[in-house]
């Protein structure tokens, strides 16, 4: 890992790739990302290809879990051991562990930041339950890793090809009714996040939601990543909330 001369870019070398599912790969890099918290993200740059945001799968050492969906994510996941990936970050605000019983929810590749969060919680001796949802068995990931860390893992798929058939929110509700968590943490599609918001409101559970948006500057300057104002209003966030700077995690745990 090399600190480049301009502040935020660091050149990391790829050490190891772990295939998580058909399209998703965890890229383990050759150094630590200092001062990071779970839920924060980095901008990963490949010269001549582009730069995109990715959540931290791990900070010590740095690892990113990347789903190959377009030019940048495909090029990064096609790198080989010893190749270089440029990183600026950590950026944004991440999760903040609240209480002792944590319910983690991941939709699709939204599971990416959850093992880092689970690891931090389990190291404190806290209880971690994770609910993972995906369209199909081939889209699931990180079940083994989360289980190995010591988290309880529930799985749903839309088509029933693995775990319980249906939406992840159904399992989350069941979990809340059997053992109410101190806080719920989620990352995934906006529809899932808003459904979880409604559930947590109804059950009076603090909640931290990680949003995605088109990210350009990653510095809170350009305005590209503004969260839709109607969503802000529903969540009680100030309008003009910036995913790259105020988030990606909206900590809604202090609401009544």
């Amino acid at each position: 890992m090399t600190q480049c001369n301009h502040g935020l870019m660091q050149a990391f070398k790829l050490v190891k790739k772990v295939q998580e599912n058909e399209k998703t790969t965890t890229m383990w890099l050759d150094g630590n990302l200092e001062n990071a918290t779970p839920g924060q993200y980095v901008m990963a740059w490949l010269p001549d290809v582009g730069e995109k945001p990715f959540s931290l799968h791990s900070a010590t050492p740095l690892a990113l879990t990347i789903c190959a969906v377009g030019p940048v994510s495909r090029a990064i996941t096609a790198l080989n051991s010893g190749d270089t990936l440029w990183i600026r970050g950590p950026l944004g605000k991440g999760f903040s562990l609240t209480g002792k019983k944590h319910l983690l929810v991941g939709g699709g590749y939204g599971a990416a930041p959850l093992s880092y969060l689970a690891d931090e919680a389990l190291k404190r001796g806290d209880q971690v339950v994770t609910c993972l949802g995906a369209a199909s068995a081939k889209d699931l990931m990180l079940i083994d890793e989360l289980t190995r860390l010591g988290a309880t893992v529930h799985v749903t798929t839309d088509d029933g090809s693995f775990g319980t058939q249906g939406l992840v929110t159904a399992v989350v509700l069941e979990q809340i009714e059997t053992d109410k968590p101190d806080c719920l943490y989620a990352c995934g599609p906006t529809g899932m996040l808003m459904a979880l918001w409604d559930i947590c409101q109804a059950h009076k559970i603090p909640v931290q939601l990680s949003f995605e948006a088109l990210t350009r500057c990653g510095l809170g300057l350009c305005g590209a990543c503004e969260l839709d104002e109607t969503l802000c209003a529903r969540l009680g966030l100030p309008s003009g909330w910036l995913v790259c700077h105020d988030g990606p995690v909206a900590r809604l745990n202090l609401q009544n």
Binding site: H6, G7, L8, M9, M43, W45, G50, E51, K52, R88, R216, C217, G218, L219, L221, C222, A224
Partner: peptide, 20 residues
């Protein structure tokens, strides 16, 4: 312009947003 469009470096910021 396409990313990278802006960076914070030790002296401040450099950008080429490109009048989006």
């Amino acid at each position: 312009h396409a990313n990278p469009v802006a960076l914070a470096w030790q002296g401040g910021v450099i950008n080429a947003i490109g009048l989006t």
